[in-house]
């Protein structure tokens, strides 16, 4: 895992390795973040055990909203503090975070299509082996179609 001997390039990068401008990561902060992460996890688990099943039907959407937002908060702390991204150059932060926005369309398109497949199966699948199918009878052939 040793690095290739520096060929005179990257002199600045070499310096940057141990010359973080004003890092404010202290031991205290590290443990603070740890307790935050642990706390959030415990709240999530309690919600998962006690609340998520007993919540009234019209508020069920709160479950994924809650879990996902807590997940992103935890992810944010890990990336920003543990991985030190908060202390990097702004352009670097953007270079890492902006491409991840691609996930938005990635998730939306895939999950939308997944839901569509369920709908298709439920509405149009006459395959007796298809457990998702809810139609029981084959439709009659339309008038005037080719045999």
């Amino acid at each position: 895992m040793s690095e290739a001997p520096s060929h005179g390039h990257d002199a600045a990068g070499h310096d940057a390795g141990h010359g973080h401008q004003g890092t404010t990561m202290t031991t205290k902060r590290i443990w603070t973040v740890f307790w935050i992460l642990l706390g959030i996890t415990l709240v999530e688990v309690v919600w998962g055990m006690k609340v998520s099943h007993t919540i009234p039907h019209q508020y069920e959407w709160l479950n994924p909203v809650f879990f996902l937002s807590m997940t992103f908060v935890k992810a944010g702390y890990i990336v920003a503090e543990f991985m030190h991204l908060r202390y990097e150059v702004t352009a670097m932060i953007r270079s890492v975070l902006i491409p991840l926005l691609l996930f938005i369309w990635f998730v939306l398109a895939f999950c939308f299509d997944g839901a569509s497949w369920l709908h298709l199966r439920q509405a149009y699948s006459y395959n007796p082996n298809d457990k998702q199918a809810t139609q029981t009878e084959q439709p009659a052939p339309a008038e005037g179609t080719l045999k």
Partner: peptide, 15 residues
Amino acid sequence: QVLPNEGGSAILYQH
């Protein structure tokens, strides 16, 4: 013969 596999989607692969 009917294969036991279910729950998947070939379109997922295409995506």
